[in-house]
Structure formats: C-alpha cells, structure tokens
Amino acid sequence: MNLNDRQRKVLFAGLVVALALVGVYLTVASPGDEQDDPSDRPSAAVSATAGPTGPASPPAGIHSAVNPGDFDVYRLLPFSRQEFATAADLAQRFVAAYGTYRFDENPQAYIGRLSGLVTDELRGELARGAAAPGILDERRQQQVVAVGSSTLDRVRDIEDNSIIFLVTGKQQITRAGKDGADSKQYAVTVARDGGSLKVYSFQPAEAGQAGDTGDRG
C-alpha cells in the first residue's frame, strides 16, 4: 500500500497512541502487581496507658433470695476475698514497719522497708520526713530504738478502688536508756495501683471521718 507523507504521519501517530494505551493497561492489570491486602500490613502497636476506671473485680451480685446461713458478702463488694485479705495484710504490715526504726540506721534503709508497701508518691513523702534533720538529731541524741507492731481494728470505708482500714500501731521504745511504750490508731487507705495494691495514704484515725456516727442507743 502506497501512502503519501500525510497519511504516513497520521498512521504513525495512531500507532503511538495505541501502544501507550496498551502499556497503561498492562501496568494496571499486571499479575505481578496484586492489589494491596490490608491483612498483609504490619499492625500498629496499641498501648493502654489509662489506669483502672472501675473495680477490677466487679461485684457478682445476688439474684436469688438471701440465705442468712450461706450469705457471701463479697458478692456485693468491689474486692474479692483474696484482694480484701491482701489489702488488710498490707495495711497491717505497713503500720508495723512505719513504727520500727533506730537512731543509728540510715534513713534510706528505713524507707527501703516501706518501698514495696506504698505508692511512689507516698514513698517520697515518707523519705522526706525520715530525713528531716530535726528528727534525726533527736533520735541520735536520745539513742531512740523503736520496734513496731500493729493490730487490724476494722474497716472504715470501701470505695470502688480503695479500702480504708483502722489500724492501731504499737511501739516498744527505748529512749535515753529508758524503756517505754506508745500506741496510736491510723486510718490507712489501700488502693489499686496499676496491677497491685499499695498503701496510698494514712493519717491519725481521729483526723478523718470515723464512719457511723449515728446513735446506737
């Protein structure tokens, strides 16, 4: 077929466009370039940083008629029996450790015995108090040695994530060569701290609400 110059140019342009279209099609539909599958993508790590917003052991509740001979109060409380026992033991051990110290002991050793029982914030407060120059000087001058013990008295209050115990701390004290004894009741708050229970705060029992103040007449 004989083509003039104009016809050849038109044919060449048509072939260029056709080849370009074929290249686009092969690029889009090529078997080697499969469509992206979301399941093949690396998953993003999720970090849960928020603390507990409710009880770790929600009350199971009681749906049947209450049987006084088989009544499980823990079904109505935000703490299990095990958690309750752990919190009570923690409060009792803390008060005993708090009341045990020596005039020749490094304050860091004293705080070390309390570290596993209390929150980081309370530990800092106790450390500052134990290192106060006035307290250290007095104990050294009188060579004070105190051995603490404690009795768990009762529960003052229960919240979703904390329990307040009344604990009496007792001390056998040697001061300036003389033996003596002291006793003081504390309100000790044990709270959930991450995945464990820790002493969150404490104060003399008379400084807080004593609980039931109604007439018992």
Results as ranks from 00 to 15, higher is better:
Q185N: 14
R139T: 08
P38G: 05
G99W: 00
A109D: 04
N2Q: 05
F94E: 04
T174C: 08
A207H: 06
A50H: 14
G134R: 12
L11T: 14
E121M: 11
N2S: 09
Q141H: 10
S57Y: 05
T174V: 11
A85G: 15
R81P: 08
G129R: 00
L21P: 08
Y186F: 03
R6N: 14
A88C: 08
S80Y: 14
Q172H: 13
D36S: 01
L126E: 00
S150R: 00
F71T: 04
V147T: 15
S201C: 06
S47H: 12
P38N: 12
I62N: 09
K170N: 06
T213E: 14
S30H: 09
E206C: 03
Q35P: 12
D120T: 15
S162T: 11
A130V: 00
D36A: 03
F84I: 06
T119S: 15
R6S: 11
R41I: 09
V144K: 07
L19D: 13
A176E: 10
T151W: 00
K178V: 02
F79T: 12
T213V: 12
D37G: 01
G23R: 15
V144T: 12
R154G: 11
D137T: 15
A146D: 12
L117P: 04
A29D: 08
R175S: 04
V95N: 02
S57Q: 07
S162P: 13
R128L: 00
D40Y: 13
R175H: 03
R81H: 13
T151Y: 13
A44Q: 11
V95H: 03
V147W: 13
A207P: 06
G169L: 01
T49L: 12
T168F: 03
D89H: 12
P42F: 02
A205W: 02
N67W: 10
T119E: 15
Q35C: 09
A97T: 08
F79Y: 13
T189R: 11
Y101S: 01
G54K: 10
V22C: 08
T49A: 09
S201L: 06
N4F: 00
D70G: 02
G194I: 15
A18D: 07
S57C: 10
E34Y: 06
S115C: 02
I164R: 13
L77H: 02
D33F: 05
V22Q: 06
T151Q: 09
F94Q: 02
D157E: 10
R41L: 12
M1P: 04
A48V: 14
G112D: 05
V16Q: 15
A181G: 09
L77T: 05
Y186C: 03
R154M: 12
G51I: 14
V73H: 07
R175C: 02
Q185W: 04
A20N: 14
G217Q: 00
L19P: 11
L126C: 02
T27P: 06
P78W: 07
A130T: 00
Q7H: 04
D33W: 02
S47Q: 15
I164E: 05
D104H: 01
F84P: 05
S115P: 00
A97P: 01
K198H: 14
I62W: 11
L166T: 11
D33E: 01
V46Q: 11
Q171A: 06
A87V: 11
K9P: 07
G54F: 04
S150F: 08
V144Q: 12
R128F: 02
G180P: 03
S162L: 09
T174Y: 07
V145M: 03
A97L: 04
S150P: 08
V144Y: 08
N4C: 01
Q203M: 02
